[in-house]
Design a protein around this nucleic acid. Structure first.
Length: 156
DNA sequence: GCCAACGTTGGC
DNA sequence: GCCAACGTTGGC
């Protein structure tokens, strides 16, 4: 199993929103690397750290799980959507996504500042200066460490 | 609100 | 294929 970190602005979609709807198509990703991760590398069952960006403070709020196989992001075909892409067609979709389902909200929110100060998390993509990628792979050891900091026990 | 970092676009 | 201009991200 692989591990991931997915960013979301809590004003737009937070861990609490995910816990309410249970499952959510990850629409609107318009970055090729992030798309490739969803399209090529994610497997149903993979776990992801749910990161709140543009939050006060920013940090990891919980855990989500890849809920199914990738499929075309429907918003790319919708002229009414802010994510509409005129260069995409049903025959040639540009943007693929997966659904994420709610797993847990951390008992303890882990602020970015705490992550930066933790030697055990050194090397995480989200801690690199200038990393704007909305989806990044996470090493198992970093994932485990964050679960521990968040006060969440991984189910067997 | 500022601004550094970085991805994308488009003229050439 | 280069690269300047532009737009976006996201911490602060």
């Amino acid at each position: 199993m692989r591990h991931w970190l997915i960013k979301s602005e809590p004003d737009v979609f937070s861990i609490d929103d995910l816990s309410k709807v249970k499952r959510e198509p990850w629409t609107g990703v318009r970055n090729y690397q992030a798309r490739n991760s969803m399209r090529d590398d994610m497997q149903p069952g993979d776990l992801a750290l749910f990161y709140h960006s543009n939050a006060v403070p920013p940090g990891v709020a919980g855990i989500a799980r890849v809920a199914g196989a990738p499929y075309p992001d429907p918003t790319q075909f919708d002229p009414e959507s802010e994510y509409f892409d005129p260069k995409a067609s049903a025959e040639n979709p540009r943007w693929m996504l997966v659904d994420f389902e709610f797993v847990a909200k951390f008992p303890a929110y882990v602020p970015l500042q705490q992550m930066k100060e933790d030697p055990a998390l050194e090397g995480m993509a989200v801690l690199q200066k200038g990393t704007r990628l909305s989806i990044t792979p996470v090493e198992a050891k970093h994932f485990k460490r964050l679960c521990k900091l968040g006060g969440w026990k991984v189910e067997a």
